[in-house]
């Protein structure tokens, strides 16, 4: 099962001033905290292809899932509806993230795997059908991302079978 592990490491310092007879103070380091894995998608995260494109199927069968090499975002963290550039089988292909393993805000669905639908640069999906349920918030997100003379990302919605 592919999942992105990203943890936050913080050092918490408790300064302990120990007064000895010669009154020297020693500083003790204590505590090393790590947060639980937050499963955020960033560069080099592996994704699961959920459409029926040949490229995607081949990659998943071989056990070499696509890795994100660029997130088209202000911050490098990808969530539902973000366009990403993936490296699959030596090729660079764009994709739309349609399902995220990380904790989501209220009313947004969270899936057990990080799902991606491969698309061309103009937004046409490579496959003809998405086999898994897809969050309904994609409708609004992809519509917002689609501009008149740019790529049309809403084509992905036409191949979706079920909305959650």
């Amino acid at each position: 099962m592919w999942h992105s592990l990203s943890r936050i490491f913080t050092m918490s310092v408790l300064v302990n001033l120990v007064n000895t007879a010669t009154s020297c103070s020693t500083v003790l380091w204590r505590g090393f905290h790590t947060s639980p894995a937050c499963h955020r998608l960033q560069k080099l995260s592996r994704l699961r292809v959920v459409d029926n494109s040949e490229l995607g199927k081949q990659a998943m069968l071989e056990g070499k899932p696509p890795r994100i090499i660029q997130v088209y975002n202000k911050n490098g963290i990808g969530t539902t509806g973000d366009i990403v550039l993936c490296a699959i089988k030596g090729l660079k292909k764009k994709g739309v993230i349609v399902g995220v393993k990380a904790q989501q805000p209220v009313l947004l669905p969270r899936t057990d795997s990080n799902n991606v639908v491969l698309i061309e640069d103009n937004g046409t999906p490579l496959g003809t059908r998405i086999v898994v349920p897809v969050p309904s918030c994609l409708r609004t997100i992809l519509k917002k991302k689609t501009h008149a003379k740019g790529a049309d990302y809403t084509k992905v919605l036409s191949i979706a079978t079920r909305f959650v």
Partner: peptide
């Protein structure tokens, strides 16, 4: 749903 585990927080 369709072999994909989906969770929603409400």
């Amino acid at each position: 749903i369709d072999n994909l585990g989906v969770e929603i927080k409400l």
